[in-house]
Design a protein around this nucleic acid. Structure first.
Length: 353
DNA sequence: TTGGAATGGACAA
DNA sequence: TGTCCCTTCCAAT
């Protein structure tokens, strides 16, 4: 998936697209027909991420849309607030399309696959700045809403945009209390302002489970996935197989601080980049002797980038993730890979001790 | 046409 | 620990 930075980006996208609007909610695929029926015609008043969980808050149309209260984390919304909780899992993705006047947003956010519908953001009229359509007045009557493509579990249709969810691991309507219960099971989120490093440090320090596994445990820290796990441990110089309790607290705290920087940057730019400029491209350790970097046939990692010029190429974005067999960017030794708890773990046996 | 892979996680034993 | 689920894309048949 889509690690936590992606979900925060989604929350911002939904806020920009739909906040305060009454939405049409449907389930083209049919598997979420009941939930869609419950939410259809309600007003979106909150869009919040915690780790990899996305929560969209809906109130009945006509109820006071107390957006400010609803968006404060931890504040209990009115009893008539219902939340759409979604989790993308390994394959899930949101795909967006919008009217010419829609706020500029991402096209598709989610699983590492081709961005279906990317071009759909361009209005079918191909006239982006049609002066006949005053900004802010467009409705679904004035633009062409694309047909759902693939197995669309839920579709959210607003005044000037549509969002389709495919392949989620979770998609359900819950109450405010149930939302709290979900959040209670999650560890602190480095992207959230309320993320508490002390929780993370304490939890890691009292377990002999390896630090590599603990970083993937959403109850220890929310939002970290396989890429951030591998990369942050490399940057800290910590062996993923070390028991958490054997990693000095100061080092664990430094890992948290690094996650805050890396993940917030990821949420901002839509791509995970962990390499420092001096460690990218030619001139890195091992490059001279190794000649051209061998193509091992992997690493086709795609990111949900914002496509901005000057973006770091995906093959230079990581130190160790999906780089097994390639020379470490710092010391030149081949990067290692091993399956740990069902997931591939990548690390440098020399730089990480 | 098939099957492996992908940045996850819930659940049972 | 193993099994299953969610869906799509692309390399290999």
């Amino acid at each position: 998936m889509p690690e936590g930075h992606t979900v925060h980006r989604l929350a911002r996208t939904f806020d920009a697209l739909y906040s305060g609007q009454v939405l049409r909610v449907s389930s083209p695929q049919g598997r979420f027909a009941d939930g869609a029926g419950v939410l259809d015609g309600r007003r979106l008043v909150a869009s919040e991420a915690w780790g990899k969980q996305l929560f969209l808050g809906f109130v009945p149309d006509g109820a006071p849309a107390d957006v400010s209260d609803a968006q404060v984390p931890g504040v209990t919304c009115g009893s008539d607030t219902l939340w759409l909780r979604t989790h993308l899992g390994l394959y899930g993705a949101w795909t967006f399309a919008g009217a010419p006047d829609a706020p500029e947003v991402a096209h598709a956010i989610g699983a590492p696959r081709r961005r279906i519908g990317e071009r759909d953001l361009v209005p079918s009229s191909s006239d982006v700045s049609d002066p006949q359509v005053p900004r802010g007045t467009s409705t679904s009557d004035t633009w062409e809403v694309p047909e759902p493509r693939g197995q669309v579990r839920v579709r959210l249709l607003g005044a000037h945009a549509v969002a389709d969810l495919t392949g989620p691991t979770a998609c359900e309507v819950i109450t405010a209390d149930e939302k709290k219960a979900v959040e209670a099971r999650l560890g602190p989120d480095p992207i959230r302002d309320d993320g508490d490093p002390a929780d993370f440090v304490a939890r890691v320090g009292r377990s002999r489970v390896t630090i590599g596994q603990q970083l993937m445990d959403q109850a220890v820290v929310a939002g970290v996935g396989n890429i951030y796990r591998a990369e942050v441990l490399f940057r800290a110089g910590v062996d993923p197989l070390r028991p958490g309790r054997d990693v000095p607290a100061a080092t664990v705290r430094a890992i948290w601080d690094d996650l805050v920087v890396l993940m917030r940057d990821g949420a901002e730019h839509g791509a995970i980049v962990t390499t420092r400029p001096e460690d990218r491209g030619a001139g890195q350790a091992g490059a001279d002797d190794a000649g051209p970097v061998p193509d091992v046939g992997r690493g086709r990692t795609r990111q949900n980038t914002d496509g901005s010029p000057g973006a770091v190429p995906s093959d230079q974005a990581f130190y160790v993730y999906h780089r097994d067999g390639l020379p470490c960017r710092v010391c030149g030794t081949p990067v290692l890979v091993k399956e740990l708890a069902g997931r591939n773990l990548f690390w440098c046996g020399v730089c990480q001790t």
